[in-house]
Amino acid sequence: MDFYQPTSLDAALALLAADPEALPLAGGATLVAMMNADLVEPSALVSLRDVAELQTIEAAADGGFRIGAMISHAALADEARLGGGNEVVRQAAARIAHPQVRNIGTLGGAVAHGDPSSDLPAALVAADAAIEIAGPAARRVVAAENFFEDYLTTALKPGEMVSAITLPVQPEGAVGHYEKFARVHGGYATLSVAVVLAMAGGECSHVRVALGAAGATPVRVDAAEARLLGSVLDADAVRDAAAILAEASDPIDDVRGSAEYRLMLVPRLLGRALAAAEGGA
């Protein structure tokens, strides 16, 4: 296996374009684990460690954020500027695995891996984030909602990589919350609910909800949010919205919980997530 350590994004992209079996190495928290398990055998790794343009968090003038792909989960979890609705992303990063893994793993790596049981995909969909993609031919941007396509499968084409994530300006007064249910502290979610919520005059004035570990991609349904909008988040509204989300879910059966159990968690975790967000809104 060859190993390259380019210092610019263009150089990294050229190396990836030259070898279709090469993979970009971000932190390695997932890729090295998969190599250790003999699940992937790349012909070469292109380390992004020294690509400076992937390592910054920029606050945009309008209040949004642009976060470089190589920002670690630990750095994201410590980013005090991520408040309001975008707090959901900070909270999700703080719930990934353990300190040792958060120091290694990166935002871009987790997004590119596209594991629906991991924490960031649902949070990014709830925050209406956009994924910046760099490729040999061009740069493009895909909404987080359209980026995740299937288990471990994303909109990334061969030779492309995630270069940054942008978080939008959230509605005035919005609060983000990430609710995760896992068997042990730091485990993969049995189910998770990411929510960005704003209230006005006691009624829900903005809401985006995405479920993690509920299917091949984060699960978000317009009708569920429509049911919550304008409501006072009463038990009926939450129950109906949860039923719509559960209907759209198709979770796996595994050691972290049966599909049936995961579906049973949907109304409970949605209720908790909304209550927590409302408490802060």
Binding site: G28, A29, V32, N36, S47, R49, Q100, V101, N103, I104
Partner: peptide, 18 residues
């Protein structure tokens, strides 16, 4: 677990060349 620049990491997930 070892420290890289003072931060705890899982040494099994880090490539030596990186």
């Amino acid at each position: 677990t070892v420290l890289v620049d003072g931060m705890p990491v899982n040494a099994c997930l880090v490539l030596a060349v990186n």
